[in-house]
């Protein structure tokens, strides 16, 4: 029995060490990704916690068929989508300003370029399915194939939706006279 416990501890240690590496490499990235999708810091932290707990549980079954980043981002996007379907999100009611820390305190931000700030706000106001694609492709700088893998859709669908998302952005920029 003691031998078994010892072996289990060794395995746990290996798993723990691997998990530590994963957390060091991806925690901030996942938190930022989730935040850009759900637009709320506190929810983003809760979701990120869930993502890493799932990752810890699933580490043993990770087969390296995709990269670690793709694997963990897929969990993150799925968890964020689950949140978008939940009561608390569906019942956040419309407010004219985006609650994304983008408007307030912007004067002190390093960036002073007004049109870029407006553009970031417009991205955050995109419908969530378009916003997710823009974030994964342009913020995370992932290829269409990687985005497709994470979102569980075809590469063709990624291109089509990216095209529509860009159209939507263009319309909004024109509407706001931001060109």
């Amino acid at each position: 029995m003691r031998g078994l416990e010892l072996a289990q501890n060794q395995l746990d240690k290996t798993k723990e060490a691997l998990f530590e590496e994963v957390m060091q490499a991806y925690l901030k990235k996942v938190l930022r990704l989730v935040y850009l999708i759900v637009k709320d810091r506190s929810s983003a932290e809760d979701i990120t916690q869930e993502v890493f707990l799932k990752a810890y549980k699933g580490l043993g079954s990770f087969r390296e068929e995709s990269s670690m980043q793709t694997w963990i981002y897929r969990i993150a996007v799925n968890e964020a989508k689950k949140h978008l379907r939940s009561w608390s999100f569906r019942n956040l009611f419309y407010k004219p300003e985006v609650d994304a820390g983008i408007v307030e305190g912007i004067e002190s931000a390093v960036i002073k370029s007004d049109h870029r700030i407006r553009f970031a706000r417009i991205v955050m106001e995109l419908p969530s399915s378009y916003r997710q694609l823009i974030i994964l492709h342009y913020y995370e700088e992932l290829s269409a194939e990687e985005v497709a893998d994470i979102m569980g859709i075809s590469t063709g669908a990624v291109y089509t939706k990216l095209h529509r998302a860009r159209q939507k952005l263009k319309e909004q920029l024109e509407k706001e006279g931001a060109w």
């Binding site: 935040y35 983008i102 700030i117 991205v123 913020y139």
Partner: peptide, 12 residues
Amino acid sequence: FKETADQTLLRD
């Protein structure tokens, strides 16, 4: 957008 987001949306 990456740079913009890092400096605004995600700076905290």
